[in-house]
Amino acid sequence: MEFPATGRRVLITGASRGLGRAAAHAFAANGDLVAVHYGTREDDARHTLAALPGSGHVLVGGDLSDPAVAAEVAGRAADGLGGIDVLVNNAAVMRGPHSLPGTPYEEWVAVWQQHVAVNLLATAQISHLAGRRMIDAGNGGRIVNIGSRGAFRGEPDHPAYGATKAAVHALGQSLAVSLAPYGIGVASVAPGFFETERVADRLSGAEGEAIRAQSPFGRVASPDEIAAAVLWLASPAAEWSSGTVIDLNGASYLRT
């Protein structure tokens, strides 16, 4: 895997805040150029961009679930960075509880369609767009997918989220096999609970103690801890980890 002298060109989807923001900072601090993607949170994304160390980073917005818009996002990122060497598929939705017993059919259908469109299809589409650029450039590359512990242990209150994250893991393993001949490694991480703005109310409320108790460490992860694993999986040293799904859940759920 060869990189330009200016560092890797990294597209991170859903980088306006949370894990995406932490990953953007980790890559930028490593000397890489980052395209900060956002769907709707432009102000947050601009804050992420402004706080990145180094220069040459770019901002790209757009709804990746629309194939035409996804193509525009990939094009603007590649133009702004001079190419794409690394893709981090972080953009995702996790809508409110939608357990089967408690959700009307019409709402159930709408929630599933949204999760599939954003979490799975958008990931597949931007992976194709970035992956083809990596193949054409002939320098190898990396794709790192953000999955979830919920893909393995189940998400009874958020089944569409758990199912689409399981599909993202499977997609990554399929791409790992098909892209290896081009020097492109593909891997996924499966985080457990970690601190983000989205879950701050849950962690500070009555539910917080029970959530922290899921791990024998008695806490949840920080976004920086997850971002550190993403950064390593995108490194040249991680080629032999292609196809893996790394659990990052503080021993809160152990797969066999």
Rank of each mutant, 00 (worst) to 15 (best):
A151R: 05
A206Q: 13
A176M: 11
P181Y: 11
E207F: 04
Q113C: 04
R153D: 10
E207T: 12
Q173A: 13
V199G: 01
Q114P: 00
H158E: 13
V118A: 08
R198S: 11
A187C: 06
V168P: 07
V220M: 06
H115I: 06
A213R: 15
A163D: 08
G185Q: 06
I135S: 02
S215N: 05
L171E: 06
L179H: 09
Q114Y: 03
A221L: 14
E197T: 11
Q125G: 01
V109R: 14
S188A: 15
A122W: 04
V144I: 08
L120H: 02
G208C: 12
T164K: 05
E197V: 01
P181E: 07
G154S: 02
A137E: 05
A187T: 00
H158S: 11
N145H: 10
A163E: 08
D157V: 05
A200P: 02
E195Q: 15
A117W: 01
F217K: 08
N119R: 00
P159W: 03
V168F: 07
F152C: 00
G162H: 10
G183W: 02
A190E: 12
A190G: 11
A110R: 13
G140N: 01
S222R: 15
A190L: 07
G205S: 12
R219Q: 10
D136M: 03
N139Y: 00
A122C: 06
N139E: 05
D201C: 02
S174Q: 15
A213Q: 14
Q214G: 09
A166Y: 10
L129D: 12
G154D: 04
H128M: 07
R142C: 04
Q114F: 01
A130H: 07
F193T: 13
W112M: 08
S222W: 08
S148M: 07
V199I: 14
L175P: 11
Q214D: 10
G208E: 13
G131M: 10
H158M: 08
G140L: 05
S148E: 03
N145K: 00
G150F: 03
E207M: 12
R153L: 00
Q214T: 15
Q114G: 00
R132G: 14
L175Y: 11
F194E: 01
G208M: 14
Q114I: 04
Q125N: 09
A137I: 05
V116Q: 04
R133V: 07
S204K: 15
G192R: 07
P216D: 04
S174L: 15
Q214N: 15
W112L: 12
V111C: 07
G141D: 00
G138Q: 03
I126Y: 08
H158A: 06
G141V: 03
A110I: 02
Q125V: 10
L121H: 12
P191D: 09
F193E: 06
A130M: 12
Q173E: 15
Y161C: 08
I143R: 02
A137P: 06
